[in-house]
Design a binder for these strands. Structure first.
Lengths: 341, 341
DNA sequence: ATTTTTAGCGGGAACGGTACCGGGAACGGT
DNA sequence: ACCGTTCCCGGTACCGTTCCCGCTAAAAAT
């Protein structure tokens, strides 16, 4: 129990060579069944465990996946849970690093994981990230890479993402169907892909319904409850305030809700509200907030599966892109018409 | 970019020996400044990175911390964030494994991390875990171990925990101060330390205030919203129902709240409610739920700091136990008396 | 009876890096 | 002129495992 037994210890004790012991333990060729049994018996007795470090060193693989995420909020925790689940099954352990939405931290994390020699990367970029040299460095070393959720369009690799445009469409169409006409959107930072895609869905849906987008109703703010709260206050103070708001996250929806309540407005009568992510909190607040479900857990699992698949296939194939379809869960914050139940 | 440059490559190119190159790169003694410069220049040019795997293999340390947690809920995510923060600072990377509240998974995770040869463990046990052989195995190999949050009293190692008794006391005392007399408690599984400690605080506070505990008001149920909902329904259906409920988690408080609302009772007038963890959701629901803050982020950081300290000190010291003091945040669900503002 | 095969095992190299020891050269002091 | 020191560098071992090659002896084939 002091020192881990090694293959050498077994070899000496049994007057065999290291090679023979190694073969015996691996059920390899060229080994007499008696010797094999003897070796295995002693190995069990000494509680022999092969030294993973030596193996990793030899094979140049660590059976470890580096996961870089911007934070550990509800959505990403759930995704990590899915990743962890599949990875464990496949014999991999994950190293989770949070960039904390900071570009600098993301780079540090990448470096760290790179020289920890992880077998590959699963990355969701931070909202601050605008250049991608660190990501390209991963690729230039031929290390498998999968992007998920917050993907980057001009990086060529397998990706798992939500159909964010569709998410924007179903949320906006729902508000229109409920009779709302001046629909505002609380979007995220301007360079954030998922935000822009959801907004794209919002814009096209407006157009298709003959509504002309109003720039004053399009607000970019941080992915954050407080900012959303303040942005909503400003929206409601306008001369022609919106009659409904679509926020691209539930945390922002909560912020909007607080501002709406403070103003004394009622949902869904005076104003409609639709959020994104379908976090549990949306069904706990009063009124319940309609929200777009993005199936985080499944997305995490899909990501890990795609990653494992990528590791095991040596052929260079066209990078696939797994797209998850979102679904709207309607609650009181936007259900104005009794017709649609 | 095909192959990582090694120390040998530099040595050959410069007609030096591996040893010399190694010394030059490490600014070691016995090295002429010219050779040092030459080596460093070539190293930079070849983008030389020392092979961490070889180093780990040599030094028998991986600069990796194995973290085992029951899940990734709000509290534990926040703690992990704190751990990650401190670990990164100290040059360590964390491997997070979720046991998913399953004893079996916890054992698998332990094995995995053990033969990944992590430098140490930071563990919070699952609610299912009743025997601790896997934990003791870690100790028998002289691998540093810190327990946090869900600690185990009969394991002798450094621990970081909340003063759970105090948490139970301040919650219960608050309810008594607000004039509640029949106080129920929704506790967790019976073998869960944190649950029992919070209940201990509950019981002693009742006694000190001359209230005799009623067994019917003490409910053990899973750490789960749904169970809490059902347990509360049963409580409210009693002949002498409680006039207030203390739940040992906010998720359970939410479950209780739903049952209370369904019954048509009002908080805080008809019934009082206090939760635990002070999750953001407590201030978002209506009415806001009073809750005991446990400073998860600080707790995570404290845990990691204690762990690092432990790694760096070779002396065998008496295991310290860091105890975090909780604080009650009063909201509408229990603020019955105007006197206390 | 001689050659060829085959089973079973040992010896060494290799992976990338560091530590330790040793040794030559230059230099200083006596 | 001799010895001791210091400066620089090289050689080798080692970490634990696998892999490749080669060896021996017995079994099989000719």
């Amino acid at each position: 129990m002091e020192k881990q037994a090694t293959i050498k210890d077994i070899a000496i004790a049994l007057r065999l060579s290291k090679s023979t012991v190694s073969r015996a333990l691996r059920d390899a060729h060229d080994i007499k069944s008696e010797t094999k049994e003897a070796v295995k018996a002693l190995a069990a007795q000494l509680d022999y465990q092969p030294n993973k470090l030596a193996l990793s060193f030899l094979n140049k693989q660590t059976h470890t996946i580096g996961v870089i995420i911007p934070n550990l909020d509800y959505v990403l925790s759930t995704m990590v849970k899915g990743i962890d689940e599949v990875a464990l099954e496949a014999g991999y352990t994950v190293m989770v690093c949070q960039s904390d939405e900071s570009f600098g931290r993301e780079i540090v994390n990448t470096k760290r994981l790179l020289d920890s020699l992880v077998d590959g990367f699963i990355v969701s970029v931070s909202s601050e990230t605008k250049v991608f040299e660190h990501i390209k460095k991963i690729q230039s070393k031929n290390i498998p890479l999968v992007l998920f959720d917050r993907i980057v369009s001009n990086i060529d690799c397998p990706k798992v993402r939500l159909d964010n445009v569709a998410g924007g469409v179903i949320a906006t169409q729902h508000l229109i169907d409920q009779g709302y006409k001046r629909i505002a959107i609380l979007a995220g930072p301007e360079n954030l892909n998922i935000s822009n895609k959801r907004m794209e869905g919002y814009l096209t849906t407006l157009s298709e319904n003959g509504i002309k987008p109003d720039k004053k109703l399009i607000i970019h703010c941080d992915f954050n409850q407080q900012y959303a709260y303040e942005a909503t206050k400003e929206l409601l103070a306008m001369k022609h305030p919106p009659d409904s708001i679509f926020t691209i996250s539930d945390r922002m929806a909560i912020g909007a809700m607080l501002a709406i309540k403070e103003k004394g407005l009622r949902m869904p009568t005076d104003i409609g509200l639709v959020g994104f992510n379908n976090e549990p909190v949306t069904s706990l607040v009063t009124p319940g907030i309609s929200s777009v479900e993005m199936y985080s857990y499944e997305m995490g699992k899909a990501t890990a599966r795609l990653f494992i698949e990528m590791l095991h296939s040596n052929e260079v194939t066209v990078p696939p892109e797994v797209v998850i379809k979102p679904k709207l869960f309607v609650r009181e914050s936007s259900k104005r018409l009794a017709s649609k139940k």
